[in-house]
């Protein structure tokens, strides 16, 4: 499923408008441990986390994730937004919990 469709269905808030949403979401991954994402998430997956600092961008970029969803209405650091813009990593926020985001993604067939 295209990222644009996911964003639309889950009503995610787009943090970086310039980013291209025409990329394929091949799955999802939930974790707040960066090493766990680094070691286990697969490229193309959409990462759901509560971590908001800029290191999440480096991980998403290295793993080539399709984007990061910050759940539970957590607020992003400004450095994180700047870095994601630079690295072209789609970044979203939502008031939904990690559980709810994952559940809805799963229901969508992601």
């Amino acid at each position: 499923m295209k990222l644009a469709e996911v964003v639309n269905q889950l009503k995610l808030e787009e943090i970086i408008e310039s980013v291209d949403l025409d990329r394929e979401v091949t799955g999802g991954y939930c974790s707040d441990l960066l090493s766990n994402v680094m070691g286990q998430a697969k490229s193309g997956e959409l990462w759901i986390t509560l971590q908001t600092h800029q290191n999440i961008v480096a991980v998403a970029s290295l793993v080539e994730l399709s984007g990061i969803i910050i759940a539970c209405g957590a607020e992003l650091d400004t450095e994180t937004i700047a870095k994601a813009k630079k690295e072209d990593i789609p970044l979203f926020t939502t008031d939904l919990s990690i559980y709810e985001v994952a559940g809805r993604l799963y229901k969508l067939g992601v």
Binding site: D32, L33, L34, S35, N55
Partner: peptide, 8 residues
């Protein structure tokens, strides 16, 4: 910060 979980 999500590091230091002993996974590195």
């Amino acid at each position: 910060l999500g590091f230091g979980a002993g996974m590195g």
